[in-house]
Design a protein around this nucleic acid. Structure first.
Length: 570
RNA sequence: CCGCCCGUAGCUCAGCUGGAUAGAGCACCAGGCUUCGAACCUGGGUGUCGGGAGUUCGAAUCUCUCCGGGCGGGCCA
């Protein structure tokens, strides 16, 4: 049980004894130092519904509170209970940790997390950073607390647009193909330009779509070659970004091709289908457009083709039925909200979804400095690989300047980790729901609330531990929290578990980022004010080394959850 | 027109299951390296929480309304 749970349960028991257990205790970390470590906000609400004087009830609660970890309790303001923790209790709980980092242990479930999902027609751009960084972090946190997680990369490898690509590919010879595919964006643009300007080419492109969908062998072979190349590009980017998606995690759109007619047939059997202008649609009452007219979910187009509604339904069917996931999380942009709502609603109506939890975790779009959205067609998009390279270059220059004694090889490997960490953290540290401004200087900042700040705290600890000549396993003695900075750090360390819980509450990774930033700040303050190696009292020195060591463990695990590596020197 | 999202310090953002005097980072100013790594620390001020109304002991947070911006809305994904 973490600190909050310990307090919560004690307060809940007092509430019960006082006959006000109908109201929740509402225990929170105190907002200000002067209010102690935790505060109980639930007394006022409880007093209100029981028609009691809030301050009197608060006093009664404090009198009954059976909580040995508490040093001081006080009733404040209109009826808050402020809780100051006892240093020895923090010391005890820290010492019990050993080398473990405290994480919550919920009932294990099977999660599937759908993220990344690049369209193989286009090279990944800056916008893909969000789904990759956020999705991968969620996966890591879920695994860290003991859930079973299936990564799902629903890559877009199918559809009418592939016609022009194939037509274009077909007129190249093999060596040209491999060189042309090095820059997918240009490749795609050349093809679509031809499609627009060359009528004969456009005709041929349409023919390729039909042949591809019909399973024409030569066409399929060409398609495979393109997909293969394109996936290689993606995997390279994942590796560069330290994203844990493997090829085996790819479950592409085309994998559902055979299921599409089945899905339509099943919808038909359930009487959900209706024809409208030649298209097969599902009309659900909850979705209405203007004038209250129902909005169709088109599952088969009038030309017989299947739109992505069908594919996504097939995916739901698979994930709930065959994959048997308890919870499926879609880390997909906010613009798809209505679409996914429809998908889940139709899937529920069709009986594909019963008691599984399917959730869309939307994230905002990238905006330019002026607050206007990036256009998708005008070439304003920044390639993801370019952002990575820029970040690593800046980190390289910085690390070389700050730490010239390292070797060239060290400079390079550190720059890779620091640069990549910085851009991922920039995404993760923001509330995922809102739009964000794309700004090189913010994205690539190495100061303040950034990944390099956290990594820097980690290297300082490693440096101290190394100079002290101790291994973490040597540190088994007494922890003493005498100084305010020591106590604050100790409490903060124990709160890692609460941060993970809160982050998982609504899958907000910025909650974890905030915690790690505060932890690092607390460590920096401790580091400045509580000398370790210069400390003459060996017991105090040992205690501080141990605090530092635990901090390093928490930082490493926390950053690891965010998909960010640590370095011993930087 | 309908639906969803957003509007918090000069900038980028936290805080949103209602709680105390609304917080960080950047930028700016002043201190701190012969002393465990200055990518750091200490101190300094900044707000009509878009406007208005309502709910109540208490609203940035919940409700309504208006203004401003974004996104989505039958055969692209």
């Amino acid at each position: 049980m973490n600190l909050k749970e310990q307090i919560h349960s004690a307060v809940a028991q007092s509430f019960e004894e006082l006959g006000v257990s109908a109201s929740p205790p509402i225990v929170k970390q105190a907002q200000k130092r002067e209010f102690g470590h935790y505060q109980v906000n639930g007394v006022m609400g409880a007093a209100k519904s029981a028609k009691l004087n809030p301050r009197e009830l608060a006093t009664k609660v404090t009198e009954r509170l059976n909580l040995p970890i508490v040093n001081k309790l006080e009733v404040a303001g209109p009826g808050f209970v402020n809780i100051h923790l006892a240093p020895y209790a923090i010391e005890q709980q820290l010492m019990q940790l050993g080398d473990d980092v405290p994480v919550p242990s919920p009932e294990p479930r099977h999660f599937a997390v759908d993220y990344s999902a690049p369209n193989l027609m286009k090279e990944m751009h800056i916008g893909h950073l969000r789904t990759n960084a956020i999705g991968d972090a969620i996966v890591h946190v879920l695994e860290a607390v003991g859930h079973q997680v299936t990564r799902v990369n629903h890559v877009g490898d199918w559809g009418a647009q592939f016609g022009s690509l194939l037509a274009y590919l077909d007129q190249l010879d093999n060596t040209e193909i491999s060189t042309e595919l090095k820059d997918l964006e240009v490749f795609y643009q050349s093809a679509s330009k031809l499609f627009k300007t060359d009528h004969e080419f456009a005709e041929r492109a349409r023919g390729y779509v039909v042949r591809l969908q019909g399973g024409d062998a030569q066409c399929v072979a060409l398609w495979r070659q393109f997909i293969e190349e394109s996936i290689k590009h993606c995997q390279d980017v994942y590796e560069r970004l330290n994203i844990s998606l493997a090829r085996a995690d790819i479950h592409a759109e085309s994998a559902y091709n055979d299921d599409l007619p089945v899905v339509v047939a099943e919808l038909e059997q359930q009487g959900l289908l209706e024809e409208s202008d030649g298209a097969m649609c599902v009309f659900l009452e909850e979705f209405t457009g203007k004038d209250g007219k129902p909005l169709p979910a088109i599952v088969r187009k009038s030309d017989g083709g299947y739109p992505y509604m069908a594919t996504d339904l097939a995916a739901v069917r698979y994930r709930a039925g065959k994959l048997r996931a308890d919870t499926v999380l879609y880390v997909v942009g906010a613009p798809q909200q209505l679409h996914l709502k429809q998908v889940f609603a139709v899937a529920t109506a069709a009986g594909y979804l019963t008691d599984q939890e399917f959730r869309h975790l939307p994230f905002g779009s990238i905006l330019k400095n002026d607050g206007k959205p990036f256009k998708t067609r005008d070439g304003a998009e920044v390639k993801l690989i370019d952002v990575i390279n820029e970040a690593v270059t800046r980190a390289y220059q910085l690390v070389r300047e700050k730490n010239p004694s390292l070797t060239e090889e060290e400079h390079r490997s550190i720059a890779e980790i620091v640069g990549v960490g910085a851009i991922k953290y920039a995404e993760l540290s923001k509330n995922r729901g809102t739009d964000y401004i794309f700004d090189w200087d913010i994205l690539l900042s190495f100061e303040g609330n950034t990944a390099p700040y956290l990594q820097y705290a980690y290297t300082r600890i490693q440096s101290v531990l190394k100079k002290a000549g101790v291994e973490p396993t040597d540190l088994r003695g007494q922890i003493t929290l005498a100084e305010p900075d020591e106590l604050d750090l100790g409490v903060k360390l124990l709160q890692f578990s609460e941060a993970i819980e809160d982050a998982l509450e609504d899958y907000q990774m910025n909650v974890l980022c905030n915690y790690l930033f505060e932890l690092s700040g607390q460590f920096m303050s401790f580091y400045e004010h509580c000398p370790i190696l210069k400390q003459s009292d060996p017991e105090i020195q040992h205690s501080r080394l141990r605090l530092a060591s635990i901090t390093a463990n928490v930082l490493q695990l926390g950053l690891g959850c965010l998909g960010i590596k640590t370095v011993d020197r930087m």
